[in-house]
Design a protein around this nucleic acid. Structure first.
Lengths: 123, 123
DNA sequence: CCGCATCCTCTACGATACTG
DNA sequence: CAGTATCGTAGAGGATGCGG
């Protein structure tokens, strides 16, 4: 991502730029976290939903999502601290379709695997 | 992407794995290419839609999409050669929602920019 | 419990050059 | 036109350890 022309394109074409942002692996996974249908999620809930991932990605991704106005971060200063994240209306609007995509993906896994093996076989 | 647990998760949770695949920058951009509402696209059409990107990404991405059964690749052996890509039903099913996401994104660009500057300002 | 900072590795991607 | 091959780099992301 360093070409002048490409950067200019990304600056001038908001649709493409935002699409790139939205279709980020971690962003889509965290916004699709099973609990994320409108309710608040605690930090550890989120990272536990994606077993085995380092804790860096949830943090980093949530910061990005917060900056973009996709989630609201609420700190409850108890001991130990408690932090909740909840999707904003903006976030719901933009990521709201992803659960459907995920569900369709779940249905079609078989077909995709089949296509892959067929392709790898040689056809 | 090297942890055992994470890889196991990706293997065992088809929804997450496919979501990750689908929400790939280049895949979503090429599947959302303005001409891609059912008609075939020629190679250069596609790469021209994303100005400034190196020609490597379209090729690589299209290969992946073909392998996954998302697009069908048709070679017409004329001189010079002509190659068309068209989304398969499977591909339309999985990527069909993305144009809507892109359009919503286009609408909300203002709000996102606002959120970013507000956040960067310090709030 | 939440999360930032550091270091280090690995791969995604761009640049470039060459074929049918 | 539509690729393939090779190489180099920047940045993504994992491991770890500390701080509030």
């Amino acid at each position: 991502m360093s070409t002048k022309a490409y950067e200019a394109y990304m600056r001038d074409c908001p649709a493409a730029a935002l699409l790139s942002t939205i279709s980020n692996r971690w962003a889509s996974l965290t916004m699709c976290t099973p609990g994320s249908h409108g309710e608040a999620m605690r930090y550890n809930q989120i990272s536990r939903e994606i077993p085995g991932v380092s804790q860096k990605m949830p943090t980093q991704t949530l910061r990005m999502l917060e900056r973009d106005g996709m989630v609201r971060r609420t700190v409850t200063p108890s001991v130990p601290a408690r932090v909740d994240y909840e999707p904003t209306p903006l976030g719901q609007g933009l990521y709201g379709l992803l659960p459907q995509v995920r569900d369709r993906a779940a249905e079609k896994t078989g077909e995709v695997d089949e296509a892959r093996t067929r392709c790898d076989a040689g056809v």
